[in-house]
């Protein structure tokens, strides 16, 4: 059976043409936004991987999308609401049951400010 297919053929062509190249700063910035710590080695490989994925998405830039509405969800086209009726909450003990750190029914987190 065939295991090696040239599925990425389209990609290969475009790598030569116009490669979307993210910078290290881009990756560091996005990682900071996403609250992910990335080491410098990780950053290096992420620059390449993310660049390739974004480059693949370049074909979206070629399309003329003037006047095309955006689809952000599918299905329901009417307002969905529920009645303003109370239902039982969890107890405070249940609420914090899965917390890594809690203190008398409150979630405990390290100080917000730099320590």
């Amino acid at each position: 059976m065939t295991s090696e297919l040239n599925l990425a053929g389209r990609l290969g062509e475009r790598v030569e043409g116009h490669f979307v190249h993210l910078t290290t700063d881009d990756v560091v910035h996005v990682a900071a936004l996403a609250r992910l710590h990335v080491t410098s080695e990780e950053t290096e490989s992420l620059v390449l991987e993310l660049s390739r994925i974004l480059d693949y998405a370049r074909d979206l830039q070629e399309l003329d999308l003037t006047g095309v509405p955006a689809t952000s969800q599918i299905g329901i086209t009417t307002t969905v609401v529920r009645a303003d009726e109370r239902r039982p909450s969890l107890t405070a003990a249940e609420a914090v049951a899965n917390a890594p750190d809690e203190d008398e029914g409150m979630f405990r987190v390290p100080a917000v400010l730099e320590g």
Partner: peptide
């Protein structure tokens, strides 16, 4: 790491 799941324990601050 606040309400559920695993938290890294050695962090000096929230960030």
């Amino acid at each position: 790491g606040v309400r559920f799941g695993v938290r890294a324990n050695d962090a000096p601050n929230l960030l």
